[in-house]
Nucleic acid binder design. Structure first.
Lengths: 159, 159
DNA sequence: CGACATAGTGAAGGTGCATCATCATGACGG
DNA sequence: CCGTCATGATGATGCACCTTCACTATGTCG
């Protein structure tokens, strides 16, 4: 039971944070000439190193076809290049240009900067409480069957 | 100072929650034949009652032109109708059909259901801590100049 | 070698968003 | 009363993201 009203209030806070945060991050990315999707791709590339488009498609959870377009755009703006895969002639390795690598490193700095803005000076126990609270919420979501790759199978039967 | 690593971890949790949550909500909406934007419009209509498209555009923070399309879609699927404004012949009042009102009420139930899934059984003090933590983060975001209607003026000068 | 799987792309389409131009109507000062 | 300006909605275009289906080129395995 606990308090349903408080629960709805908490959900409201989470949703508000979602809106404000994603809005601000998008704006910050746009200032660097990046869209959300392209920045996401750059980020994955930054963490994985040169990758095939197939791998990127799975990382971003989008169709391989879509990756083609994103890579096209990033190639056009000089952030990445397509290199032949050394052993598989079907595949291409998406690789940073120098410029792209610089930008990607900047994304990481931006993330730290963001964390600093949000949490700097906040008491440690408060941050810990927040992380634990969010972890529990995430755990509940997963327990409820939100696996983040739930295919639209015949899973949903309720209602 | 406090701990930068913990801060980055906390940001990671927030971002993960954003992804998982919005993904799940989208799926839940799609199951009712609604896209995110159309559901958002329905939600505003539910909270405001019959509204002009202009008002909806401001509520959703999108261009009036875009509202025309969303309303078109909702009219086509029978969720809303366009009624003439009683006093201003330029304007139209977007109004629920019976079906639309039912669906909108369902959205509200869904939100409560969602809150229940996320928080039911969680100790009250934990929920409170979470809300307070999120409030502080939101306050910091705003203090940092994220006003949610920051026009791309000449505000950004840094970097 | 033949059957099948896999990497990437062309074609076509849906959705959400934007801007600019246009039309009809409202509001206000002279 | 009327001209001017503001405002509500929409037509026309265009971009970004995403999808599915079809197809080519290549890898893999019996």
């Amino acid at each position: 039971m606990t308090d349903p009203v408080k629960h709805t209030e908490a959900l409201g806070r989470v949703l508000e944070l979602v809106v404000v945060l994603s809005d601000d991050m998008s704006r910050s990315l746009a200032a660097q000439g990046l869209t959300d999707a392209r920045a996401h791709l750059l980020w994955e590339l930054h963490e994985r190193g040169p990758s095939t488009q197939r791998v990127l498609a799975e990382a971003l959870r989008v169709s391989p076809r879509n990756i083609t377009g994103l890579v096209d755009a990033l190639v056009a703006t000089g952030f990445v290049t397509r290199e032949p895969h050394p052993t598989d002639r079907r595949a291409t390795l998406v690789t940073f240009t120098e410029h792209g690598a610089t930008i990607a490193a900047g994304l990481e700095r931006d993330q730290h900067e963001f964390a600093r803005i949000l949490f700097e000076g906040m008491p440690d126990d408060r941050v810990t409480a927040l992380v634990e609270g969010l972890d529990e919420v995430l755990a509940r979501l997963r327990a409820h069957g939100v696996s983040l790759d739930a295919r639209p199978d015949e899973s949903e039967a309720a209602r």
